[in-house]
Amino acid sequence: MARNITYREAIHEALAQEMERDETVIVMGEDNAGGAGAPGDDDAWGGVLGVTKGLYHKFPGRVLDTPISESAFIGAAIGAATAGMRPVAELMFVDFMGVCFDQIYNQAAKFRYMFGGKAVTPVVIRTMYGAGLRAAAQHSQSLYPLFTHIPGLKVVTPATPYDAKGLLIAAIRDNDPVMFFEHKALYDISGPVPEESYALPFGEASVVREGSDVTIVTLGRMVHTSLEAAGQLAAAGVECEVVDLRTTSPLDEDTVLESVEGTGRLVVVDEAHPRCSIATDISALVARKAFGSLRAPIEMVNAPHTPVPFSSALEDMYIPDAQRIANAAKTVTGWSR
């Protein structure tokens, strides 16, 4: 039975239900309980944004606070995964990957191949990404393209509470390492989510709006911005089909290609920087495999090739908005040779 809960609550519920179902599921990260060793509450925070709050007392010994040592505890989560646990480690901000990336891309991602198929590493690394909270250059990046590039990793970018719960449950049950990207501006959005547990398959994009004129391929927070743009465009007589990739690795090529074959026009909307991004990846895919269907050059809407600025005046310009998306859609619909 579905009811409306927030993205944050959906993630918490997925963790709680999987911890209930499977005692090998453990949670670790900085302040995941909060207050370890301090004189006050021992479940003080539940992570910096409160996602894991309440799990500590419900699952004794299975919610671990860590020192600020990303290499050590992300590596420990990976090691524990090779030893029969299903750890969910929280890398507070994906920007912090710089201090633990080796454990993710050289260790977890490669064990199975490098060891001839003999390793199973069912680790999930939850991480917060994205601009919009005035958190500046080292706490706001959208770095999923870097992980998407790495064979052996799966990369998940839920846009809605429903997807967040189902994809996180799937990630925990998955036997490969999964990077789970949570956009920090989405935690408070609400949507219908079943009370029951459910797993959504990876590599299945979601067509969140049907339309015949332009395909907008997007992901994460930009799904909502794209839908806003699609609403504006519909009023102007342009019907957009909005495709939410949901996972960038594996990638649902078929849904993207089928949509472009139907519309003949593509706008890719991606909060990452434009070079070597999901936008370039999707553009290349469509140019290679649906060239014959294209009736206009592909448009990309990305953040600029700059660090994320702090000042609200600048950050608001940095983040792709509905107007830029609508302009791109008008460019492709208005294009003629």
């Binding site: 429903y162 189902g166 079943p194 029951e196 547990s197 459910y198 797993a199 959504l200 979601s206 067509v207 049907e210």
Partner: peptide, 16 residues
């Protein structure tokens, strides 16, 4: 409709 199929899929994906 797409919605009908999506709703059925969402049901089919519930545990159990």
């Amino acid at each position: 409709t797409r919605q009908l199929v999506d709703d059925l899929l969402a049901y089919k994906r519930l545990d159990g």
